Simulated assay, not measured.
Amino acid sequence: MVKRIMSDFAAVADFVVVYVAEAHPTDGWVMSRNMDIGQHRCLEERLAAAEMLALHDIPCPVLVDTMDNATVCAYAAMPDRLYIVLDGVCVYKSGPGPYGYQPEEVRDWLQKYSG
């Protein structure tokens, strides 16, 4: 659904994904159907995991959080979260995933903004 939103609103907004600490590493809280990614022990491992993600047709830049998890700390982005930033101001913040992760709300906001 998020890929579709990125496609539908490419002329309205710039999108980025920030890859943070792995939510379900193979050597931690494993979930079925996840990629085979262990907990990152160094930045090179985190970069390699983000590269694997980017290979799955993510239609935007994939940025990578630092090993001190600065993005996770600043944005409460674990395991996932959606934000809309307009002119440097956060105008939308979803609840934390998985239950607060509501891409439909992002679609609704972008439709109102662009319409």
Rank of each mutant, 00 (worst) to 15 (best):
Y19S: 10
M52G: 03
V72M: 13
P25C: 03
Y19G: 02
V85T: 01
V30M: 14
V72G: 02
G28N: 09
V85D: 01
C73L: 12
E22F: 02
L43E: 07
V17P: 01
V72F: 01
R41Q: 13
P79F: 01
V12N: 09
M67S: 00
V64Q: 11
D57A: 13
A70C: 13
M31Q: 13
N34R: 09
A76K: 11
T26G: 11
A48V: 04
D68C: 06
E51T: 08
A21Q: 13
V20C: 12
M35G: 08
G38A: 12
M35P: 02
T26Y: 01
P59F: 03
P25K: 01
H24W: 04
P61M: 04
W29T: 09
P25F: 00
D36C: 10
C42V: 04
N69T: 11
A70I: 12
V18Y: 10
V62K: 06
A48F: 02
L82I: 09
V72K: 05
H56Y: 04
G28K: 06
E45L: 05
H56D: 12
T26P: 09
A74V: 11
R33I: 08
A70S: 15
P59I: 14
A50H: 07
V16E: 15
V30C: 12
M67E: 05
T66D: 14
L82V: 03
C42G: 06
H56M: 08
N34A: 06
C42D: 15
L63A: 14
V20K: 11
L63S: 09
V12P: 05
M31G: 02
D65K: 13
M52N: 00
I84E: 11
D27W: 01
L55P: 00
H40W: 00
V62H: 04
C60E: 07
A77T: 13
C60N: 09
P79R: 05
M31T: 07
H40S: 15
C60F: 03
D57M: 09
N34V: 12
D27N: 14
G28I: 10
D57G: 12
F15V: 11
A74T: 15
L55I: 06
V85L: 05
D36T: 11
A70T: 14
V30P: 08
V72Q: 11
R41L: 10
V72T: 14
G28Y: 07
V64K: 03
H56P: 01
A54C: 03
C73H: 11
M31C: 10
D57H: 13
H56C: 13
T66N: 11
R46M: 09
R41F: 00
A48E: 06
P61Y: 01
Q39Y: 06
N69A: 10
I58Q: 02
M67W: 04
V64C: 11
H24K: 08
